[in-house]
Design a protein around this nucleic acid. Structure first.
Length: 197
DNA sequence: AGCACGATTAACT
DNA sequence: GTTAATCGTGCTC
């Protein structure tokens, strides 16, 4: 397995969101590795994107999105949930890919400590569920995803053919005005029952 | 200082 | 389909 290099993230954020499908999210935790295959992503792009947190400019919260690509942006929302993004694009331009769903691969016993009360298919099928499952919170905000120095990174994985990629509008932004609400910036792989086994 | 709301989830009718 | 949970963030006064 190869850790994705910084150059991978220094691209158009929509391209990175598409390319992240099939890649492997890795969390080092208490001497073991929790991993999962990325199945759903969304792109958030620039201050003009009214769905993007950077719509209100550079603030303490959004500062990391303006920095170098290949770092984690982990934010807190709804008073209880954390969500994980990968910062993309050139330094100075705020953009990030939200990881919305992964398929758990290893460290299942550890993941089950937090998600085991639900069926396996529901362990990581939402942005805040990923953070619960992988034990991610603000402590890993700004983590460097391009090395194994921090406890979070992304490695090479499976290549899905283009016809497997479902593309549609981003979810959870119904109060955002057009055209942003309907831009096709969500990318999804639907696993077959065979692939889940 | 106060306020409205959120890139959500899970439980409930 | 509806709603509570729960608090950081950015905006208004």
């Amino acid at each position: 397995m190869t850790v994705l290099p910084r150059a991978f993230y220094e691209q158009e954020v929509t391209d990175v969101a598409r390319s992240l499908l099939g890649k492997c999210l890795v969390r080092r935790w208490q001497g073991q590795f929790l991993t999962g295959m990325i199945l759903e992503t969304e792109a958030y792009r620039g201050e003009e994107d009214l769905a993007c947190h950077a719509k209100s400019g550079r603030t303490p919260r959004t500062d990391v999105m303006y920095g170098a690509a290949g770092h984690a942006y982990i934010y807190f929302t709804y008073g209880m949930h954390w969500c994980l993004n990968a910062v993309c694009a050139a330094e100075g331009f705020p953009a990030a890919v939200l990881l919305r769903s992964v398929w758990p691969l290893t460290g299942l016993e550890e993941i089950a400590k937090r998600r085991g009360r639900f069926p396996l298919e529901k362990w990581c099928d939402g942005p805040a569920k990923i953070c619960q499952a992988f034990n991610l919170n603000g402590k890993l905000n700004r983590a460097n995803l391009c090395t194994t120095d921090d406890e979070l990174w992304i490695e090479d994985g499976v290549e899905f053919p283009a016809e497997r990629v479902v593309i549609g509008p981003r979810v959870g932004i119904s109060s955002v005005p057009e055209p942003w609400r309907s831009l096709p910036w969500r990318f999804l792989i639907q696993l077959t029952e065979e692939e889940k086994a």
